[in-house]
Design a binder for these strands. Structure first.
Lengths: 190, 190
DNA sequence: TTGTGCTGTTCATTAAAATCAAAAACATGA
DNA sequence: TCATGTTTTTGATTTTAATGAACAGCACAA
């Protein structure tokens, strides 16, 4: 499983043999069944997870008690409640495995050690941070300026695998619409 | 003008006398008139700007040629097309002064020197990054789950000064609605 | 001052999405 | 397998926001 991560990092940053060894030392393989919540709201997120296989999401409840899915991810990608994981503060979000998942997890002190022992990992973590900003800016832009149907079509174009594997109610919430609307949009687009 | 920035940073990170001196060395005061575009789309953003006074925005044009405002900021805050500024890549966004503005600008090499000469500034820049992530996540969440009217009310609650100083067409675009809709919402809320 | 352009408002209408209710399809475990 | 609960779809209706057109208010310059 570590090879999956090493291959993915290497596509963006050069890793020495020693770096690869560090990676195997600090990332721990775990797997979880479908529907398992692995980080709870109200607590400090324990781990950053790299997704080797499976689909995951972040969600929380709003004041009216509605469940809102804010993030959906799949390999090769990381997932956690970033800000709270980094700062060691309590998150109000749940991290859940949508399907069975194979993951590589690392806790905050592990990540700190990894970055202090290898500048490649420091560079990589900054890169991941930046990509997270870019991702969220793009998401805001789409939500602010595109219709529900255009947002669906963009997701279909960019992440078709999500449409096949993730329950539609989660996707609807993530796209900022109701499940009924997503269902109607899908009927039109067939 | 440097005191404005130093006071603002000091509220979050402890700065030594030497740090304060560095700050004054690397940030250069500039002022621009209302409506001046200070970074152009199609180019690498030259500077990161700290806003001492005035209101600024980021905007771009979509495929249909509509102007979309993606960010509005005021003191004490930074503005630039972050990812492109950091990576030295071409941005598709314009940075514009909405009102007359007093700013402190720093270029990429200045920021790098500042961070390499003082770990306080390194800590601070990570903090600003994180706040940018939090801000963007929250913006996505609001756009995905709140009605146009609720988004307006949140802006009114959190940034009332923007409503007073920024043309409503920009605010409407930023809130993901049409100017006519914003106008109607404002009538209802008076 | 008058005209011109720009910003914001209003109105009537249309289109998009939410809501409410029910049925159909699917998954899961006894 | 059947029974149960959950997810998705469908239909009728209401609500919300966009559209297109016109007008009012204001700023600025000739």
């Amino acid at each position: 499983m570590h090879q999956h991560l090493i291959r993915n990092i290497s596509a963006q940053i050069k890793l020495s043999q020693a770096d690869q060894q560090l990676c195997s030392t600090y990332f721990e393989p775990v797997h979880f069944p479908k529907n398992r919540v692995i980080e709870e709201a109200g607590q400090v997120p324990q781990y950053l997870y790299y997704i080797v296989s499976g689909f995951m999401r972040l969600f929380h409840y709003n004041e009216q008690g509605d469940e809102l899915t804010t993030h959906i991810n799949c390999p090769p990608g990381f997932i956690t409640s970033y800000t709270h994981f980094i700062n060691g503060t309590k998150s109000n979000e749940y991290v859940e495995c949508i399907t069975n998942c194979e993951l590589l997890k690392i806790d905050k002190s592990g990540l700190d050690k990894l970055c202090s022992q290898s500048s490649s990992f420091k560079d990589y973590s900054i890169l991941v941070f930046q990509q997270s900003i870019t991702y969220n800016e793009n998401r805001s832009k789409e939500l602010a300026s595109l219709s529900a149907e255009q947002r669906y079509q963009n997701l279909l174009k960019n992440y078709p695998e999500i449409l096949l594997q993730v329950p539609l109610q989660y996707i609807a919430s993530f796209l900022g619409m109701k499940p009924e609307s997503l269902s109607r949009i899908r009927r039109k687009n067939n």
